[in-house]
């Protein structure tokens, strides 16, 4: 039986912890329970936030295919992630 995992490149919002409400991009699937999250500013690609998958809500948005490819290949830059999240914030009402 396959395991549901967060998709690398998905945007998500923290539901628990001191970072509650912060948006991130999933950059790593560490285990069935844990993901690595970055926002390119507070949490950079060199130091992803390790968080329980159940403590985030996956948003109906994801990195574009080019950024996704660079995340998977390890060539993404922090400013690209940050820009992606800023674009998302601008796209939502009141963002």
């Amino acid at each position: 039986m396959s395991l549901r995992i967060p998709q690398i490149g998905s945007l998500c919002i923290s539901l628990k912890g001191h970072d509650k409400g912060r948006t991130y991009i999933v950059t790593q699937v560490l285990s069935p329970e844990y993901v690595g999250l970055c926002d390119g500013k507070v949490r950079k690609l060199k130091n992803p936030k390790k968080k329980r998958f159940k403590h985030v809500q996956v948003l109906n948005a994801s990195a574009d295919s080019e950024l996704l490819k660079s995340i998977v290949n390890g060539t993404a830059k922090d400013n690209q992630l940050h820009k992606c999240l800023l674009n998302y914030q601008k796209s939502i009402p009141g963002g």
């Binding site: 039986m1 549901r4 995992i5 967060p6």
Partner: peptide
């Protein structure tokens, strides 16, 4: 959005195998 997994004492163990 679905992956393989470690298996043993539990059906789903670490690590995820995307």
């Amino acid at each position: 959005s679905y992956s393989g997994h470690g298996i043993g004492r539990r059906l789903h163990e670490e690590p995820a195998i995307p």
